[in-house]
Amino acid sequence: IPLGTALTYRQLNCDDPETEQAALAAVDYINSHMLQGYKHTLNQIDKVKVWPRRPMGEVFELEIDTLETTCHVLDPTPLANCSVRQLVEHAVEGDCDFQVLKQDGQFSVLFAKCDSSPDSAEDVRRLCPGCPLLAPLNDTKVVHAVDVALTAFNAQSNGSYFRLLEVSRAQLVPLPPSTYVEFAVAATDCAAKDVTDPAKCNLLAEKQYGFCKATLTEKVGGEDVAVTCTVFQTQPLLPQPQPEGPDAVAVDPRADPAVPVPSQADVPVASLVVGPVV
């Protein structure tokens, strides 16, 4: 490095429009690479440094906080139309480090690292003592509720048989005793009415995803299930853009306890590996 050309970063306000543009590019990157769980939205920009980049451009080194929305990542609803998950619903936040390159007025992500975590039980209880907390996704009641709900949905369906992709979140409600679950599904090449062996059904080449919300209520001598599924338009599987830098890492959805690692057989490989991991 020639003497006299010390590397200096530009100090920018966290709420500067240029910083915000870089942060929004980062959030867009998160949502386009997370193929499990929920879309996240920008909550706060914690830190920013803008480094000159040779031979041209600038690199925005960002620390940002995000919040989980109610839109599943497979839901094509634009982020702007997605609601933030409220504290009483047991909110989930993301802490992210990014390096975003600005070159010729365009932002592109060089490096991304995010961890997500649910709000503390104490915080939820302080605001809403009776509100249900997030439940472990492998809880037997949760697994049972998803199974019953998906079976009920397929039984009512005149179209494709839908297979479970992931359980996205769950809450055990004390009164009335019930289990609330949200889960993602995908259409198969079987007709729901004709399925005898679901294991023989394959996901469609042109993926069709759905997102379901269900409540299983325990009753004396049985249980009631209410399930609503939204089926999205078919989505051709496109190659995902990869980070440009050698140090780029994938956003790891497994960091979020509310987002399970999916069944390996059910999810396309592209949704399990979203980028080089260092």
């Binding site: 490095i1 010390a6 966290c14 709420d15 500067d16 939205t41 706060q44 920009i45 909110a91």
Partner: peptide, 27 residues
């Protein structure tokens, strides 16, 4: 004379630009 190459930053102590505003709520 040995000069330490590296970062030369002179932040304005009066400037407190970060963190930025909270858009929703703090978790």
């Amino acid at each position: 004379t040995v000069v330490q190459p590296g970062i030369a930053v002179v932040p304005d102590p009066a400037l407190r630009p970060c963190p930025g505003r909270i858009r929703y709520f703090k978790v």
